[in-house]
Every structure is written in structure tokens, then in C-alpha cells.
Design a protein around this nucleic acid. Structure first.
Lengths: 395, 395
DNA sequence: CCGATAAGTTCAGGCACCAAACTTATTTCC
DNA sequence: GGAAATAAGTTTGGTGCCTGAACTTATCGG
């Protein structure tokens, strides 16, 4: 009820266009008649809507359907791979990456440029990002496809209302208007540019491409330098009032413990973050740690088990609060999944109130470090699928 | 996109009816022209929709508007106090209460029946509840008003999808279908019966009647025997996937601490619940504790400050996760607000990442123990306001 | 008492959906 | 090989709801 808009016939068309496109996205190759049956619209209406979507090159009318039995064959409908693409951009601490995704979710042009963004002034980093954006846009142009939207993933707090990057502690940035800055330095479009937190985008990538068959409610935990959480509920990202949600790293999990950069003590990040685990296992890096875990070394397994306990304490609280039935481990934790999952799961099933009705599952992220860029690109594309008229109308 | 329905003209009318009714609910006494300006609909459309809503006795066409300057006066529109009412029922551990609320939110017939529901078999309690329901329905009938919806508040986990009360630990109940059981024993209507958690309903009551001027995002913490939280975001209740959300009592706030009934250690409930505070202050009950606090006694203030620290640890985590800018203290904590608020606020402002952009406020619940029933009744009424056509159409 | 201003109503027009009849394509069976 | 059966997709007429503009009603200022 924030400020709802009045509805008219155009609203109906808009809603139904999205409904039709969504049905086709969920079951590619479906016929007009199939869409009508699935959506509850009449065949006449579906035909009219599909024509519009085909004209806007969001759909393609591939050949006839294969089916047994009598009757005319329908024409298979699918999202058009020649329709608008989504561009994903990730500004991480030690790299900049871009990727281009079509409506079906297929990835073209994925490219990562390692570089140290921490030690550079903001302007210099933005110039580098702008160059990456222009390269990707050039690629799309060469391919002859339209870029219908852009998603930018950053490791920091992004205010949903303004799109401003409010704070990126690990980059040392504050109050940066990324779309404006990049428009000044590149051919970034003025419309359809999204900015979001990398952990949130990674969670969305997991939702759309993770292959955890139909899982629509989970908490995605990505442990890198910090610990971020992306909360997905009923297939939608939950990011709080201003978009600052999901800050799991500073969960107060103990009253003591080392002092954190945020000023407090007992933050999860300090107790179960990558650095803490490596320290306690006395391992120089993750690869060595994994080797030692595979060899079954005592100190290594104990360190991971300790982290599992702290993580379990934090996540049990999260699950009790949000009533979410699954945890997906990403980032560093994805690699540690074989050793983390069982102790974590047993910790959670003991402490989560809803567990008796549906046990908590602890899954492993299927995507690697690409998750965030891909989520950003896919978000841009999903925006079009969720409201095709917004894309069609201005043209 | 769970399974969206197709839209047609009726959808448009439905949406706009809600829009008009909502505008009038937000600013009672507004004229048709005013509604048109606020909603963006034309005067013609507003007139037509208002006529329908008046015919359904959801709106009243009170006398002319008062205003300076030239021009015809509009007719004041308000929610009709003779329209459908909402019935609230609360089944607590030591009482059953009912209340009747009209569309404007005014409370008629509030009644509380003390009784010990813990020591009685389910059937006996339900019979008592049924009697209370029938009395309230009789009251509504005597008044000549329609009961358009019923909300039932219970201290337990309610599954949103089925409406089943899955578990009420303090009542010792499990898997009870309250609407069905009560329909068997009373004149409870078959349609429009909601079941929900008392903490969630209390939070909603606070949202609608709490008078925290326009506050639409907060966590309502009600400390009684357990500790429950109601999360309100953008004016809507957030209760997780299955409706089990908001379980704050078993937040893992320490790795040690006394063993809890849930089997774990370090649950917030055991460390900062009413019982824990009284124990540490060596006070026999809440009244005595408050007296001692007012007298400034050391043990009493220390006990409350200790609870504030534990609460702060849990709530800072919640606020980081959900990005909500305010905490409302209800139940026991409302009485302790003068002593809890400051330490809690300073704790939170230190640990919440978003605090620099909008300081966290710690408010006191304006409603007493009535909050839950009133929230339940108001929910029933709000359901009608949010979708008047669903109420009008079947008639 | 008239002109200006604003609220509320009436009515033709358009748009999107629906139902039903119709056309087209394919299989099945004689 | 041809007719009946079945199913996909299109065409057409009808209905509901919103809009814009003209119109009626009510009130104030001079």
C-alpha cells in the first residue's frame, strides 16, 4: 500500500503478458494451447499476447511440437536467444568481471580481470570497470543483440531506494553512485541498471541456475573475506527495508572473542570466517587446508568442526527467525561442504523449532566464484521476463 | 510467481476498489474528488466504485466537507462503522479473550475470561472458547452488524498454508485444526477465519493502532513466558515460508548458559526472559521488580541491564539480518522500557551496520496485553479493506 | 444576482478479455 | 485413399471497466 497505482486495461495486458512469458520460461517448447491451459487464459488471448512478444523478439516460434496421438501439432514457443541480453558486472576486491546472459539463461562472454581494487583510488577503479563494460557492450553489438538491462554486483551495502552504494568496507568506498559514474566513463545505458550486493546476487544465481531442483526458499551463505547471506523466500530475494539485509558476518554469536573491525566482539566473521579457520588449522591457504582435510589431519578437521559450531549457532537463529528450510553453502564454505555439512546439519536440526516438520538441508552451491556476476546478469534478464511490457512499451 | 492467476476486467475493478477504499481508510473524511486526486483515477471511476462500496455498506456518505474558498463542497467519505466487523479471539495460557472491531478500528465488546488452559484437555478448552465465540457473535447480531471475518491468536506455530496450529508448547497442543474444531462447537463462520501466532498479531496491532506515527518497519518483541518477535516490513507481516517465523526465544546468544526446554543451551529466553530477570533480581514478581527499579535498587537495575545486553546481542543480529530500523518492546519488556531502552539502544547503535544512516530507535508498545486479540480482530477487518470485492462478490 | 470555482454525473469511445464458431493440420480406421 | 475424430490456432461479436469531455449542481465573492 506504499503508493499503489490505478489499474486499467493496459495493466491487465501487462500482467497477462508476464504470465504468458513466465509460463513459457518455465516450460520451454510449450504450445499456445499449452500456455492457455496452464495460465487459465483463453487460446485467443494467448495468441494475441504471444504475437506481441514474438514481435518484440522476446519469444521465438520454433518448429512444430512432437507428440503422439491424433490432432494438429502446436508450434513450440521458447524464449528467444536473440532477444535482449542481460549484462552482469562484478566489482570485487581483487578482480572485475563481466558476463552476458541471454533470456534463456545461457552465458556468453564471461570474462574476469584480476586486479587489486583495494589499493587504488575510486576513480581509477571505475575507469577500469568502464572499460570492461564497454568491451562487453561492444561484444553484444557485434553479436547483434540488444542489452536490455545491466546488473552491478558489489561487496557492500546498497540502498534499494536510491541505488547508491552506501558502504563497501573492503573496498574502502562510501556513497558512490555507480550508474552515474559509469555512464560518465562508458556507454552504460541510462535505463535498466541495477546495483546490488554480491551475496544477494549469488543467492539469486543459485536460485535460477543452481540446480537444487525447484528449491525456492533458502539462505545462501557465502564465506569469503567477510560472511554474507542472501535470503531467498518464495523465489524472491529478501533484502530488508533499505536493501542492507543479510549481514551475517557481524552476527553476535559470543559475548567474548576477538575484537572485530566493526568495533564489537564475538562477530561470526572473526570466529568462523575463512581467516579464522585457516589460523586455527595453521594452514597457509585454502588449498592446503583441503589437502589436510582429505588426509584426515586432526587440527584441520577440528578447525572446521569449530567453525561449523559457530555457523550452526548463527544459522539456527536465522532459521528460527525466518523459517527457511534450507541452507546453501557458497564461496569458501562450498569447498568445505564435505566436512561442514554434517556437523552443521545436526546442530541445526537440534535447534530449529520447525525442524520436526521439515528437516533442514545443508546444500552445496553448484556455482563457483562466478555466482555473483551471473546473478547480476540474470537479474537484469529476469526483470524483463517479469514485466515484458516495461521493455516493449518504450520502443 | 507461485501460480499467478490471469487478469481480466474484474481484476481491474477489484484492484481499484481496494485502492479507493484504502485511500479513504488512510484519510477519513476525504471527498470523491480528493480520492480521484490521490489515486490517479478519474472522478467518474471513483464515483462508480464508491457507489458500489456504499451499497455494500463498507463506506458511509457523511455530510458535506468543510473547506474555505469558492466551489461546491464535496461529500465526506469514511469507512462505515455499521459495515462488517472483525472478531478477534485469543487463546492464551491463562485466559481466553474476544473482541469486536469495526472497519475504522474502533473496539466494541472486549472481554477477557481468566482460566487455566494448561491443565485442561484440549476439548474442554475448545468448548470454553466456542462459548466465548458464540457470545461475541450474539453481541454482533444484537448490534445488527455483520461479522466479516475472524482472527484467532494462539501462542504457537501456525502453518500458513493449512491454517493448522502445529505446536503450542505452553498449551501442550499439537496439530489442532482450530477453525474446524470451533465450527463443530459454535456458530463460527466457515469463511474468512484466520489463525495466527499471538506475537505476530501483537505486532500488527502495534502497526495499526500503536500510534508510532507512520512506523511501517519494525521488530516487535513481546516478552512473556517465552520471547516472541513479530517482524513488520513495509507495513506487512513477515512470517517466513510456513508462518513459523519470528521465533526469537531460542536465539543462540551464548555457547553456555542454562539448558532450555528445547534441549539447547544459551537460548535468549533462558537468559533474558521474564523468569531470568526476576531470578537475578531476586524479585518475586514484575510489580515488585518495577518498584525496586523505581527506587533505584542495585540488584534490580543490574538484572535489567544484564537482560538488555543479551537482548541487544540477539536484536543486533536480527537488525543486521533484516535491516529494520526500529524495535518495539511489548509484553513484559514494555513495562521495563524505561530501564531497558537506553542500554539496548546504545548496544544496537554500536553493532548494527546500517545504524550510521538511520539510528535504531527503541520504542515502547502502546498497547497492553490486549495487543494480540486486537491485532487478530483488526487483521480480519484489514483483509476486507485490502480486497473489498472478495467480501462484496459472494453476496 | 452573476461570474468564478470546484464537486459530482452522464455518455460516447476504446481497449482487453471471453466464448463460440470456424479453419487448419494430423492421426486413426475403414 | 478417404472420412471421421481430434486438437491447434484464428476470427468475430459481445461485455465490462476505465477515460475524457461535456454537463449539472453547489458554494463563494463581489
Amino acid at each position: 500500500m506504499t503508493h499503489a497505482r490505478p489499474a486499467g486495461q493496459h495493466t491487465v495486458r501487462r500482467h497477462n503478458s508476464a504470465l504468458v512469458l513466465g509460463a513459457i520460461a518455465e516450460s520451454p517448447g510449450i504450445s499456445r494451447a499449452g500456455v492457455a491451459a496452464r495460465t487459465g487464459l483463453t487460446k485467443a488471448t494467448v495468441s494475441s499476447l504471444v504475437d506481441r512478444l514474438v514481435a518484440a523478439s522476446l519469444l521465438t516460434d520454433a518448429g512444430p511440437e512432437r507428440r503422439d496421438g491424433p490432432g494438429r501439432r502446436g508450434t513450440s514457443l521458447s524464449l528467444s536467444p536473440r532477444g535482449p541480453h542481460g549484462l552482469g558486472v562484478e566489482i570485487a576486491v581483487d578482480y572485475v568481471s563481466t558476463c552476458l546472459v541471454d533470456l534463456t539463461g545461457a552465458v556468453h562472454h564471461h570474462r574476469t580481470r584480476p586486479c587489486d581494487n583495494r589499493s587504488q583510488p575510486v576513480g581509477r577503479v571505475l575507469t577500469r570497470v568502464a572499460k570492461a563494460v564497454d568491451t562487453a557492450l561492444g561484444d553484444a553489438a557485434a553479436r547483434g543483440v540488444d542489452v536490455g538491462g545491466v546488473g552491478i554486483a558489489v561487496p557492500g551495502l546498497v540502498e534499494t531506494s536510491s541505488g547508491l552504494l552506501r558502504l563497501a568496507p573492503n573496498l574502502g568506498w562510501r556513497d558512490v553512485d555507480l550508474p552515474a559514474e559509469l555512464r560518465r566513463r562508458s556507454a552504460l545505458p541510462g535505463d535498466g541498471v541495477l546495483v546490488g550486493n554480491e551475496a544477494n546476487y549469488a543467492a539469486l544465481a543459485e536460485l535460477w541456475a543452481g540446480g537444487h531442483d525447484g528449491l525456492r526458499d533458502f539462505v545462501h551463505v557465502s564465506g569469503e573475506i567477510g560472511i554474507g547471506a542472501g535470503i531467498v523466500i518464495e523465489g524472491a530475494l529478501f533484502d530488508g527495508t533499505r536493501g542492507f539485509g543479510g549481514e551475517l558476518g557481524h552476527f553476535a554469536v559470543s559475548s567474548r572473542g576477538p575484537r572485530c573491525s566493526c568495533g564489537a566482539r564475538g562477530c561470526l566473521e572473526r570466529l568462523a570466517g575463512q581467516e579464522a579457520i585457516l589460523d586455527r588449522a595453521a594452514a597457509p591457504d585454502l588449498d592446503v587446508l583441503v589437502e589436510r582435510l582429505e588426509a584426515g589431519e586432526r587440527t584441520a578437521t577440528a578447525a572446521v568442526r569449530g567453525a561449523a559450531d559457530w555457523l550452526g549457532a548463527a544459522l539456527s537463529s536465522v532459521l528460527n527467525l525466518l523459517d527457511v528450510p534450507a541452507v546453501v553453502l557458497g564461496g569458501t564454505y562450498a569447498r568445505l561442504h564435505p566436512w561442514l555439512a554434517d556437523p552443521l546439519a545436526s546442530h541445526l536440526s537440534g535447534r530449529v523449532m520447525g525442524a520436526p516438520w521439515s528437516p533442514v538441508s545443508v546444500l552445496r552451491s553448484a556455482l563457483g566464484t562466478e555466482a555473483a556476476v551471473r546473478g547480476a546478469a540474470a537479474s537484469a534478464v529476469r526483470t524483463i521476463i517479469a514485466d515484458p511490457d516495461a521493455y516493449i512499451a518504450p520502443r
